[in-house]
Write a protein that binds this DNA or RNA. Structure first.
Length: 275
DNA sequence: AACGATCCCTGTTGGC
DNA sequence: TGCCAACAGGGATCGT
């Protein structure tokens, strides 16, 4: 499941292909991929003959303004991949050929992802409420503390709320909480100023090193580097997917609980429930 | 307004 | 071995 680091690496791969390129052929072949427009035809019509400007990323969203002021937005969801100049393969729901000779394809078996074209003054609902990007524009500790004030939900759940901070998903939320030594079930409003600062530092380190390591490729290989290799960050995860295995810091078995229908991994010793 | 539950979807896995 | 339920989760939506 691509999170901020994986989406950023995909952006870096796609940007040289799409920036300044003009669409000469586009085909959307799945209704759900076009669900934020009236259907595949609308996405095709609004994209055809348009020129991409600069491919950007906010949280887990990829977006580019077009030469006529529209905005194209893509989200990879759970299983979405972009491939440049690839071969035909199952679950290809979007193909776009450019005047520079390159073609990009969007492959998404679970169809949680999408490609949308919207007007600048009518962004997608999800992007409208998007909080500051967790990596490029993280909030000051005092600002995050203010946002967490009075919040009773588990800090893990709040980290997954893209309206607070955008870009963290289930893997990096667990990793950041472990690095910050904060129990995932602690109510957000109970965090001390010191813990809030630790959490922001941990988020920064966890995301940065994931990008440096080429992202996290899980066993399902839904995410791969542009050249087809697996990202190397899986072996560096300290809690995610390590239920019952010894904590790499203290040896205590990693525990797993569910928070907002998401598996949550933590060390009961390093991340004490009290404080 | 905040919070938790539910749903969408398909490939993979684990239990019997 | 084969079948099927359970599981994985980002985000929208809805009820409380």
């Amino acid at each position: 499941m691509p999170e901020l680091p994986e989406v950023e690496l995909i952006r870096r791969h796609l940007a040289p292909v799409v920036d300044g390129a003009t669409v000469i052929d586009v085909a959307v072949s799945h209704e759900r991929t076009a669900r934020y427009n009236s259907g595949p035809e609308e996405v095709e019509q609004r994209l055809n003959a348009r020129t991409f400007t600069s491919l950007a990323r906010t949280g887990k969203f990829l977006h580019s303004e077009l030469d006529d002021g529209q905005v194209v937005v893509a989200h990879l969801g759970m299983s979405g991949r972009f491939v440049v100049d690839g071969d035909d393969e199952p679950h290809t729901h979007f193909r776009c050929r450019f005047d520079n000779g390159h073609e990009i394809r969007f492959i998404d078996p679970r169809t949680f992802g999408f490609v949308a074209v919207c007007d600048q003054d009518a962004p997608l609902p999800g992007m409208l409420r998007l909080g500051a990007d967790a990596w490029t524009t993280p909030p000051e500790p005092s600002r995050l503390a203010a946002m967490l004030q009075k919040r009773t939900a588990a800090i893990k759940a709040l980290l997954l709320d893209q309206a607070l901070i955008s870009g963290l998903g289930n893997i990096y939320a667990d990793e950041a909480l472990h690095r910050a030594r904060i129990h995932p079930l602690r109510p957000g409003g109970d965090l001390t100023d010191g813990e809030t600062k630790r959490l922001l530092d941990a988020i920064s380190v966890v995301l940065e090193s994931a990008i440096d390591n080429g992202g996290t490729s899980l066993d399902d290989l839904a995410y791969l580097l542009p050249d087809g290799r697996a990202g190397e960050n899986l072996g560096r995860l300290r809690v995610y997917g390590r239920t019952d295995q010894p904590c790499l810091t203290c040896g205590t078995p990693i525990e797993q609980v569910r928070v907002r229908a998401r598996s949550t991994h933590f060390c009961p010793n390093c991340q004490a429930a009290g404080k």
